[in-house]
Structure formats: C-alpha cells, structure tokens
C-alpha cells in the first residue's frame, strides 16, 4: 500500500518535473526541474531496494552533474528566455507519442519475461550496498576500472576544453587563427 502511494506520488512528480525541463523556456527553470526530477528518481531506487544506486544517484546526479551544469550555465546568459524556433511541433509529439505507445506495448506484452533467469541472485540477509560491492569487485571489476579511467579522461577533457585559453578553440581552430597568433 505504502509502496503504491509512494510510486504514484513519485511518478507524478517526476513526470511533471521532466515535462517542465523539456518544455520550459527558461533554462534556469529547466535545470532546477531536472535536479528535482533526479532526486525523485533516487526515490524510485530506494523503493526498488537499490539503496546504493539511490545514494549514487543523489551524489552524482543531483550533486555533481547538476552542480556542473549550474557552473556551466554561468558562462551562458541564462536570465533571458531561450529563443527557439520550433518547427513542426506536432511532428515531435507524434513521433514521441508513437514511440511511447510502441514501447509500452512491447513492455506490457509478455515477450521476454519467461526467458529471464537471474545471473547474480540477490543474497539473502545481505544489505544492498554490500551485495553490490561483491558483484562490482568480482564480476564487473574490469568494467569498473575502465569506467574509472573513462571518468578520468572525461575530467581531463573537460578541464582542457573549458580551461584557461577559452578565447581559443582547440577543436575548430582554423589556420588563419594560428597565423594571427603567430603574428602577435
């Protein structure tokens, strides 16, 4: 009962928040709504007994990612409304609506459920973070390390791209720009 109430409540809030994110004209509103939606999603994770994931969701998404966006937005002019020329809005909703319908059909229909067996069953009597840790550092050790390296690379890339020499482009540098620089 409690689960159902929580589920519907969270669902309503999440959908509303994400809808604001997608439809709002103000980038600041969008970001705030997105952060709120992220918190709600961590709520689903807790409901689903994935405590560790929920915590990570709050820390990484609501904490790190959203903070990153917030800092990033300081470079852009966010007080103004975002000017967008949206062509054929009906097509957008049609495409998305159809996709949603098809996805729902695909998911509701008992297509795959009979064919699934648990690879790493939950261990009884073990807390979720502990279980996650066991799997993560045994079976998924290599992907975990790779993900770590990837994050490191992404961090370096972010620093380089948005680093000191922000008046120069590293990726789209044209030859004349170099020459001009050389002339200086």
């Amino acid at each position: 009962m409690f689960e159902a109430i929580a589920f519907y409540l969270f669902s309503a809030i999440t959908i509303a928040m994400f809808a604001i994110t997608v439809l709002s004209k103000n980038a600041l509103y969008s970001m705030s709504a997105l952060a709120a939606g992220m918190v709600m999603i961590s709520g689903f994770f807790f409901l689903l007994d994935a405590d560790f994931l929920g915590v990570v969701q709050i820390i990484v998404y609501t904490g790190a990612v959203m903070a990153l966006y917030a800092f990033g937005m300081m470079f852009f002019d966010t007080t103004r409304d975002v000017k967008e020329e949206i062509r054929a809005p009906k097509l957008v909703f049609l495409l998305s609506g159809l996709s949603a319908l098809l996805l729902v059909i695909a998911l509701v229909a008992p297509i795959v459920s009979d064919h699934i067996t648990a690879l790493y069953p939950m261990t009884e009597g073990v807390e979720n973070p502990q279980a996650v840790g066991i799997v993560l550092f045994t079976k998924y050790l290599v992907p975990f390390e790779v993900a770590a390296v990837m994050l490191l690379v992404a961090m370096i890339a972010g620093i380089v791209l948005a680093g000191k020499k922000m008046d120069e482009s590293l990726t789209l540098k044209v030859e004349e720009e170099f020459q001009e620089k050389g002339a200086k």
Binding site: L53, V65, A118, M122, P143, M150, L151, G158
Partner: peptide, 24 residues
C-alpha cells in the same frame, strides 16, 4: 538479479563523463 543495478551504475558513470566533455 544485480546485473540491472550494475548497468544502471555504469550508465551513471557514463552520464557523468558525458556531462564533463559535453559541457566543455
């Protein structure tokens, strides 16, 4: 099965890197 959670976990990692590079 914990595999699903593992995937979600890695997706979060990927999303974080994507944000870092994309924002840059």
């Amino acid at each position: 099965d914990l595999t699903g959670q593992m995937f979600a976990f890695f997706i979060i990692a990927i999303a974080a890197s994507e944000v870092a590079v994309g924002l840059g």
